[in-house]
Simulated scan of single mutants.
Amino acid sequence: MGTNKRYPHLGSQLAEERELREARKRGALHSLSADQLRLQSQVVTVVPERMQVWGLTWLRFGDVDVRSTVLVKRWTSDAVGVEVDVDGEKLRCWVWQGACQRLQNRVDGWR
């Protein structure tokens, strides 16, 4: 079987979506706790609605970890608030900043 020359990232994207669906069945999406975030003492930067910032990070559903392309919604000096779409449902969580790699555009996570 050949490769998709028009959308070379499509196979990786579909595999990630399948992994997210399977992981979602294993449990809820984990997020950092309020004690870990310390939002009352941290400056939170919010990404404007007209702007999209993409990242690549590890997400945990129940006991399963999935590396996923995410939309960055906000951040502090320690953490990043991200959003991921799983079958049309937008899920949000906080991850440690060191665990999130910024991408120039969405498809870079699937190359």
Rank of each mutant, 00 (worst) to 15 (best):
G88N: 01
L59P: 02
H30S: 13
K73A: 13
R21M: 10
G109C: 03
W54R: 07
A99M: 09
L37Q: 07
L39R: 10
S68G: 07
W54A: 07
V46G: 02
E22C: 07
R111T: 13
V44I: 11
D35G: 09
V70G: 02
D108I: 01
L10S: 11
W54Q: 06
V95Q: 10
V82L: 06
R26Y: 00
Q97H: 11
M51L: 15
G88C: 00
W96Q: 13
D108C: 08
E19C: 11
L103M: 03
G88R: 01
W58L: 13
D87K: 06
P48Y: 00
T69I: 09
R102Q: 08
W96T: 08
Q104I: 11
K90Y: 06
E22K: 09
S12R: 15
W75C: 11
L32A: 06
L29Q: 05
G27P: 02
L10W: 06
Q104D: 10
K73T: 11
Q36L: 07
V46Y: 07
F61Y: 03
W96V: 06
D108A: 07
H30Q: 14
R21V: 09
F61C: 02
T3M: 12
H30V: 07
R92S: 14
L14H: 04
W54C: 06
D87Q: 11
T3K: 15
E49M: 12
V66E: 01
K5M: 11
R24L: 13
D87W: 01
V80D: 00
D85C: 09
V70P: 01
W110G: 06
V80S: 01
N105G: 10
S68V: 05
R18S: 14
S68C: 09
E89L: 12
Q13M: 15
D87G: 05
Q52G: 04
L103H: 03
R106S: 06
E19V: 02
Q97G: 12
P8Q: 02
W94I: 00
W58E: 14
A34H: 14
V53K: 08
W58H: 12
P48A: 03
D108R: 08
F61Q: 03
M1F: 11
N4Q: 06
L29V: 04
T57W: 02
Q52N: 14
